[in-house]
Amino acid sequence: MGGNAWRVLRPLLSRLGQAGLVALLVGCIGFALMHALPGDQAFRLAAERYGPDIVDARAAAAMRAELGLDRPLALQLLEWLGRVVRLDLGRSLVTGEPVIQELRVQLGYTALLAGMALPLSALIGLPLGIAAGLWRGRWPDHAVLSLAVLLRAVPAYALGLALMVLLSVRLRWLPPGGFEGWAELVLPSLTLALGLAAVSSRVARESVAAVAASPVLAFARWKGLSERDAVRRHGLRNAAIPVLAVLGLQLIGLVEGILIVETLFGWPGIGHALVHAIFARDVPLVQGTALIMGLGVVLLNAAVDLACLLIDPRRGRQAA
């Protein structure tokens, strides 16, 4: 049993190491990018803090002095790293609030959005993909392929707008913005889910098509199992393994989608916070947001790893 525990622990430990690396890289890259952007940081911060109408060189100078922005960059970065080691993300340069506190609320909203979009994308993409895989080469396959190509080709921003116009303005079924109830959650998560489903349906289709043509399913039929039993007991799990693995890769797409969808729908999540922090040159907030996003991706990947371990016995086991 000890071997089995190691089988689970090993990928988790490697993910943990990855998390540390992500933290370091994201922090440093975020810092470097923020300082590479054109525009004066103190002016941008002051504009964000006091509004662009009232900002002037005096406010910027005060800001620079208050936040120590004229200290050497290397020193500022080292300070940030030192704090991260102590699990302190610092304070937002705009609001002065601790970054962790700013992100706590936003993270919850993003988790809600992602938590809704991921199952929704599975609910849309997997059945379509499975249907396409089972009837490969026939009209459901072609229809699902066209739909997937269309959804992939349309940028999330345009897709969101189209859904907004159709479902909110024309049909009045759903509110186009806000974040007060389940109704407001539907449009952004649907936008996000459709983009993800476009990919997952293709993966599910390929996977199901491969399994449908595999000797495993053929043997299950030759054994005398009914089609239903053969697919249920031998088809689904084998088809799910590559789908799950790709799902892990898709999480990157989820991050990208979240940035766009949150901005469009005014969803107060972490992606929205990142976009704003970048505009404001709020370096600690950018670093903190990117860090949390990076860790989130690593965490979800670890969850995917675990799920793969559960359904795929070949993972981490020695062949005889």
């Binding site: 707008l161 907004m164 116009v165 909110s168 009045r172 509110p175 186009p176 913005g177 806000g178 729908f265």
Partner: peptide, 11 residues
């Protein structure tokens, strides 16, 4: 565009 949609949808 989102603001306009919110006005048009009566939200």
């Amino acid at each position: 565009e989102a603001r306009a949609a919110m006005a048009e949808s009566g939200q």
